[in-house]
Amino acid sequence: MAQAEAPRCRRVGILGYGQLGRFLAQQLLSRGPPLGLALAFVWARDGARLEELPPPLRLSQLCPLAWAEVDLVVEVAHPCVAQEHGEDILAHADFMLGSPTALADPETERRLRGAVARGGHTLYVPRGALWGCEDIQRMDRGGTLAALKVTMTKSPQSFRPEGWLRERLAAAVAAGTRAVLYEGPLRPLCPLVPNNVNTMAAAAVAAPRLGFDGVQACLVADPGVPDCHIVEVEVTAVGDKGRALRVTSTRRNPAAPGAVTGDATREAFWRSLLACRGHGGCVQLC
């Protein structure tokens, strides 16, 4: 009787080798093989940091050949990677978008969704620190979600702002007090702090009826929270007889001083990576 052929390992490439990329690479090397996962390559914008990895795992440049040799590409670098290479990746492999702030650009979202429809691969969006993700999705799909607001509070040193928000943060640091850096629709905020508000972007994906224009964002710099990131999610839904249902959750994620990513987010991304399998061509929260 012929012996059954062992299932092939799912090959994973990682784009980005900061805190998250390094953690995911280590998990794939140590915990991946028994789970049917193999690390295929790692790329970093600063390639010098890859020297701690074996040479065969270092990807020197982004190219179609790399995507053709893997089943899943995980981006944990910067939204510009998805904007420049996302379509090409989705033509060959599933794509876990660790920087969903890239989708705040309507043209990028249109191109990536089009690539999903054409190629049959899945665009995965990790939930990150978004608590109650499934409940938000169900309310949105049922048409009862009326409002969604996400407030993120971090130490001033944890933000990496661009444009005019950099000046506002500098003023807050000089004052040494708690300051609301931004409050309003999510879409304009994403390009100003693309590495800090991916949890908010995940909320916009979970609630497409509201989307990046309807989801409300509040960004707070507070020197009184140097060792954690606080994410507050406020959900308003329309209940029976028009009465409103309101739910607020608060998540305190331990974080090293000045860290962009909280401690628990690393494990959350690993769990998201494990969920990136078998969904077919769609956009899928994981």
Score class of each variant (00 low, 15 high):
Pro106Gln: 05
Pro100Phe: 11
Gly98Thr: 04
Ala102Trp: 12
Pro226Thr: 02
Gly142Ala: 13
Leu112Ser: 01
Asn195Cys: 11
Gly163Asp: 13
Val215Gly: 02
Gly224Cys: 04
Glu134Asp: 13
Arg178Gln: 14
Leu148Met: 06
Gly143Val: 02
Val81Arg: 05
Pro223Tyr: 14
Gly142Thr: 05
Pro226His: 08
Arg110Lys: 13
Ala146Arg: 15
Ala93Leu: 08
Arg141Met: 12
Arg113Glu: 09
Leu165Thr: 07
Tyr182Met: 03
Ala217Arg: 02
Asp105Trp: 07
Arg113Cys: 05
Asp88Asn: 12
Ser158Trp: 00
Arg187Tyr: 02
Pro161Asn: 00
Ser158Arg: 09
Pro208Trp: 00
Met200Arg: 09
Pro226Gly: 03
Tyr124Met: 08
Ala117Phe: 04
Ala170His: 11
Asp227Cys: 07
Asn196Gln: 03
Pro156Asp: 00
Lys149Gln: 14
Leu103Gln: 01
Ala91Arg: 15
Met96Cys: 13
Val150Gln: 02
Pro223Asp: 10
Met139His: 13
Glu134Met: 07
Ala201Ile: 02
Phe159Glu: 13
Phe159Trp: 15
Tyr124Arg: 11
Arg168Met: 03
Gln157Thr: 10
Pro188Tyr: 03
Ala172Arg: 02
Ala203Met: 03
Gly184Ser: 01
Pro161Phe: 02
Thr144His: 08
Lys149Met: 14
Val173Tyr: 00
Arg138Trp: 13
Glu107Gly: 00
Val81His: 03
Gly163Ala: 14
Arg111Cys: 04
Leu97Asp: 09
Ala146Ser: 15
Arg166Ser: 09
His92Cys: 13
Pro126Val: 01
Gly114Ile: 01
Ala217Asp: 03
Leu165Cys: 05
Phe159His: 08
Ala201Phe: 06
Ala206Ser: 10
Pro223Ser: 10
Glu167Cys: 01
Lys154Met: 13
Ala147Thr: 06
Trp164Lys: 07
Pro208Gln: 06
Ala91Lys: 15
Val193Leu: 08
Val225Asn: 10
Asp222Val: 06
Leu192Asn: 04
Thr108Phe: 07
His121Lys: 12
Lys154Glu: 04
Trp164Cys: 04
Thr199Ile: 14
Ala104Thr: 12
Met139Ser: 10
Arg178Leu: 15
Glu162Pro: 00
Leu189Ile: 01
Glu109Met: 10
Gly132Cys: 09
Pro156Ser: 07
Ala93His: 09
Met152Cys: 09
Asp94Phe: 01
Cys218Gly: 03
Thr108Ile: 11
Pro226Val: 01
Met139Tyr: 09
Ala174Glu: 13
Val173Gln: 13
Gly211Glu: 02
Pro226Trp: 08
Leu192Ala: 04
His85Val: 07
Arg168Phe: 06
Cys218Trp: 04
Thr122Lys: 03
Pro185Gln: 05
Lys149Val: 08
Pro156Cys: 05
Gly224Leu: 04
Met96His: 05
Ala91Met: 14
Gly176Ala: 06
Phe95Ser: 11
Met152Phe: 05
